[in-house]
Amino acid sequence: MSDKIKEALDYVIDNKKIKTVFQPIICLRNGSVYGHEALSRITCESEIKNPDMLFNAAIKYNCLWQLELLCRTKALEAAFIFMIPPYSKKLFINVNPSIMHDETFKRGFTKDFLRQYNIDPKSIIFEITEKNVITDISSFKSTISYYKNQDYSIAIDDAGSGYSGLNLISDVNPHFIKLDMNLIRGINKDRLKYSLVKGMVEFSKVSNISIIAEGIETYDELETIINLGVQYGQGYYFQRPEENIRDIDESVLKSIIEINSKKNHITNGVTSSIYIKNLARFLYNKLFKRFFKTEP
């Protein structure tokens, strides 16, 4: 079986059998799309069944750099379509921390390299997963500082899925913390999860680190997350990963507007202009479809 996995890995890399799909990250205050996470998918029949299996195989057979390069290039090529103004959103890219300090990787993310895709480093957020083991924390911290000085942002991914999360957050001082979906799943019915996320929100306020809740799948989870004050959300409730970039559905926008209306996001009598625009968009579409239906 191991030989078949190695052959399948080599085939994927050599023939560039990777495509990028995007999942939106939504501002939970006003319903706007803040950015997209780039996710890699295999485009052929293979013994390798999913992305986790693919990257684990790359680590085992010392092909991680080649795979990361392929996935990154595919992501930037696809993102080029929507990173150009006026649709200048953030692009979240997953990176294994074990190769971030590799000089080849650093050379692969120079401003000159990004310029050919018309992408500014300020639009790139590196996602570092807590699941990966970091063996040389001193070198890793130096590497993180290097990327921050180059105007990249850093996100800790899957926070809550490992056992060294607080140390990693303290060492990295990221711009974003992405809460693992297992913390979000059923949070509306779990007081412990609720308390943990509430604590992270309070931490985010004093540390100036934004929280992204991953894996939101139900209205009740969304409502709980918004009421807790989490800044951003991601998950199937908003949109599944897709190759094409599109707006979130009106029903989803309606949910965000309704929940925020209950929470009363009006401060000193002034409401966010984006919130008003999205509210107007929803009401217009609702009334237009009701009173100006056209026959098929």
Rank of each mutant, 00 (worst) to 15 (best):
M1L: 11
S2D: 14
K4E: 15
I5H: 12
I5N: 11
K6G: 05
A8S: 15
Y11V: 06
N15M: 08
N15T: 12
N15Q: 10
K16E: 15
K19H: 07
K19T: 08
K19F: 01
T20F: 02
T20I: 02
F22N: 00
Q23E: 03
L28M: 06
H36D: 03
T43L: 05
C44M: 05
E47N: 12
E47A: 13
I48K: 07
N50E: 11
P51S: 07
N56V: 07
K60W: 05
Y61R: 04
L67S: 07
E68L: 01
C71S: 12
A75G: 07
M83Y: 11
P86R: 11
P86I: 05
K89V: 06
K90P: 04
V95R: 00
V95E: 00
N96S: 15
I99Y: 01
M100W: 02
T104C: 09
K111N: 13
F113I: 13
R115N: 14
Y117H: 14
Y117R: 13
N118S: 14
I119S: 14
D120H: 13
S123E: 15
I128E: 00
E130F: 07
E130I: 04
N132T: 14
V133N: 14
I134D: 07
T135E: 13
I144R: 03
Y147T: 07
K148M: 07
S153F: 06
A155M: 02
D158A: 05
A159Y: 13
G160I: 03
S161D: 04
L168F: 08
I169R: 04
S170H: 10
D171H: 10
H175N: 14
L179N: 04
N182R: 11
K189S: 15
D190L: 05
K193V: 05
M200Y: 11
K205A: 14
I209V: 14
I212Y: 10
Y219F: 09
L222R: 06
E223C: 06
I226D: 00
N227E: 11
N227G: 06
L228P: 10
L228Y: 10
G229R: 05
V230D: 00
V230W: 03
G233Y: 09
G233V: 09
Q239L: 10
Q239K: 09
R240L: 14
E242P: 00
E242Y: 04
E243T: 09
E243P: 01
D247H: 04
I248G: 01
I256F: 02
N260Q: 06
I274K: 08
Y275I: 00
Y275E: 00
R281G: 06
N285T: 07
N285C: 08
K286E: 06
L287F: 10
L287M: 11
L287Y: 08
F291H: 12
E295K: 13
E295F: 09
